[in-house]
């Protein structure tokens, strides 16, 4: 479970995340959408404990990421849009390294790594240095390593970037499957089709605020549009922008 309670984060005078409150229950697949600079990545960084909130708190599996970071991180997996990998290691060595950081025992590590390698079709690359792999393969290595310790909460920033249709499908299937098994999944993406197809609930951020949260149908109702998610998204963000402009004009 992920709980965000009145989360605020400032970058100088800019409020990147503005009083965001949200609960993503166990086993839910949550997709966060929003235009560029809406605050999605900062929200994810706050969940991952990479930055400290100005106020409010983020909880992962019941643990506050600021006051109980190790407990929270033990239950969390985070894959950024361009994940860091040790270039001179092979995928196999990298998987082992990650598993050891999570203090997995040898037997479990080898078994789970073997399953993930097979699932992500990584066998042909296991002995090659990561520096020589394509972006898509590196992305698969990163996601496999993140899933290794069976996290309760999985946070991904633009996970489909660089994946070919086959492996994008594989990843979607794995995420759906894990979500059904009880893993909480939090994805930030610009690909509306991913959110539409996969997410149980969708959140829309705009200028640091969470302006709408709900199922596909609930968003359609809130926006007063019919049809694809794209129309709801555009309508909701446009409404919010208009309201902001009106408020600014009234203030002026």
């Amino acid at each position: 479970m992920i709980e965000l309670i009145h989360l605020v984060k400032n970058f100088g005078e800019i409020v990147a995340v503005n009083d965001v409150s949200l609960t993503v229950p166990v086993g839910e697949f949550f997709a966060l959408l929003g235009p560029n600079a809406a605050g999605k990545t900062t929200t994810i960084k706050l969940i991952a404990g990479l930055v400290k909130p100005a106020s409010g708190c983020a909880r992962v599996a019941g643990f506050d990421v600021q006051t109980h970071p190790l407990e929270a991180r033990q239950r969390l997996a985070y894959v950024p849009d361009f994940p860091f990998l040790y270039d001179k290691l092979t995928p196999w060595e990298f998987l082992r390294f990650t598993g050891q950081l999570f203090r997995m025992d040898e037997e479990r590590l080898e078994r789970v790594a073997g399953e993930l390698i097979q699932r992500f079709n990584l066998e042909p690359y296991l002995g090659k240095p990561i520096e020589g792999l394509s972006h898509g393969t590196r992305q698969r290595v990163a996601i496999a390593s993140a899933l290794l310790h069976a996290p309760e909460v999985f946070v991904l920033d633009e996970p489909m970037v660089g994946l070919d249709p086959h492996h994008a499908r594989v990843l979607k299937d794995i995420l759906k499957e894990r979500s059904q098994q009880g893993m909480t999944i939090f994805v930030s993406t610009h690909q509306l089709s991913v959110a539409e197809e996969m997410a149980d609930r969708i959140g829309i951020m705009h200028e640091g605020r969470l302006i709408a949260v709900g199922t596909r149908e609930e968003l359609r109702e809130q926006s007063g549009t019919a049809g694809a998610l794209e129309q709801s998204f555009l309508s909701l963000t446009a409404q919010e922008a208009r309201q902001r402009e009106a408020a600014a004009a009234a203030e002026a």
Partner: peptide, 14 residues
């Protein structure tokens, strides 16, 4: 450093 950013969300003490 990207390694630092990679390590910070892992269960490795700061």
């Amino acid at each position: 450093n990207r390694e630092t950013l990679f390590l910070l969300p892992l269960p490795v003490p700061a």
